[in-house]
């Protein structure tokens, strides 16, 4: 699949998958989760990946983010080809180049909010960029909660900590796996707002898997997956256009 670069955006890809396939099992019981998918995530762009359950959207994200192995094809983060990396190198790549936001927040309950935010830098043994860290904390509005532990924060606040954690180490690309799945709509909107701001204002690259058309509407681009293949792509989406597109999957599902 080829995509035309948007005017005014840089053409460099933050991540790229080429002919990416992921197959589980063998012979009769073989399941193809990804079927020769090619996709590019450009720098400073907010991409949402959508599709019905079992379409392979999470698998795609996991493979591109170096969380999962793939059967064939190639994945590049920046200039690095993931297929040839050993576990240790892959871990280092995730640590230095990639940020993650999970559906279940996944904060360490023993650490304070601030310690959770700086965790990736602590793992790397790096000092945080003070100015940047302050900006990020300011942006997600956690300045007065830094000493709290996750159990003392609301779900929305916890996910804001997770967003700050992903942004704090200035990764090349941030992956979100249903980041608003466990949040009420107001908190969800807040978190999505932060993600969009980080793209617009800080030039961050964000890729997010979601099944919520409202969440997808915050993205610059939506790609649709079905049966392990990219079946459609939409730029400047709105909740309504995304919903309409999704409905067509349902209709197809019912008729087939």
């Amino acid at each position: 699949m080829t995509t035309t670069p948007l005017a005014g955006r840089t053409t460099t890809a933050a991540a790229r998958a080429t002919d990416l396939s992921k197959v589980y099992g063998q012979g009769e019981t073989q399941v193809v989760a990804l079927d020769r998918v090619s996709v590019e995530f450009r720098q400073a762009e907010f991409t949402a990946i959508m599709g019905p359950s079992g379409s392979g959207k999470s698998t795609l994200m996991h493979c591109v983010a170096g969380l999962d192995t793939f059967s064939s094809g190639s994945v590049r983060i920046g200039e690095t080809e993931l297929g040839s990396l050993k576990d240790k190198q892959l871990t280092r790549l995730r640590r230095d180049k990639i940020g993650f936001i999970f559906q279940a927040f996944n904060l360490l309950p023993t650490l304070t909010a601030l310690e959770n935010i700086t965790l990736p830098m602590d793992i790397a043994g790096r000092k945080a960029d003070k100015q940047w860290l302050e900006n990020v904390i300011q942006m997600v509005g956690l300045a007065d909660r830094l000493g709290h532990r996750p159990s003392q924060l609301s779900g929305g606040q916890q996910q804001r900590v997770a967003v700050a954690r992903a942004l704090a180490s200035k990764p090349d690309i941030i992956f979100g796996d249903e980041p608003t799945g466990n949040l009420d709509s107001r908190s969800g909107a807040e978190v999505l707002g932060f993600l969009r701001n980080s793209v617009r204002e800080l030039g961050q690259t964000v890729v997010m898997v979601t099944h919520d058309p409202v969440a997808a509407a915050y993205a610059d681009r939506v790609i649709f997956l079905a049966d392990g293949r990219i079946v459609d792509e939409m730029h400047a989406p709105t909740a309504d256009t995304v919903l309409d597109r999704m409905k067509r999957f349902d209709a197809k599902g019912r008729t087939s």
């Binding site: 240790k88 280092r92 640590r95 996944n106």
Partner: peptide, 16 residues
């Protein structure tokens, strides 16, 4: 388990 998975994802290797 979940915490360990997260730590692996954000960059602690097996040794860590």
């Amino acid at each position: 388990q979940q915490e360990i998975g997260m730590l692996r994802a954000i960059g602690i290797d097996r040794k860590g």
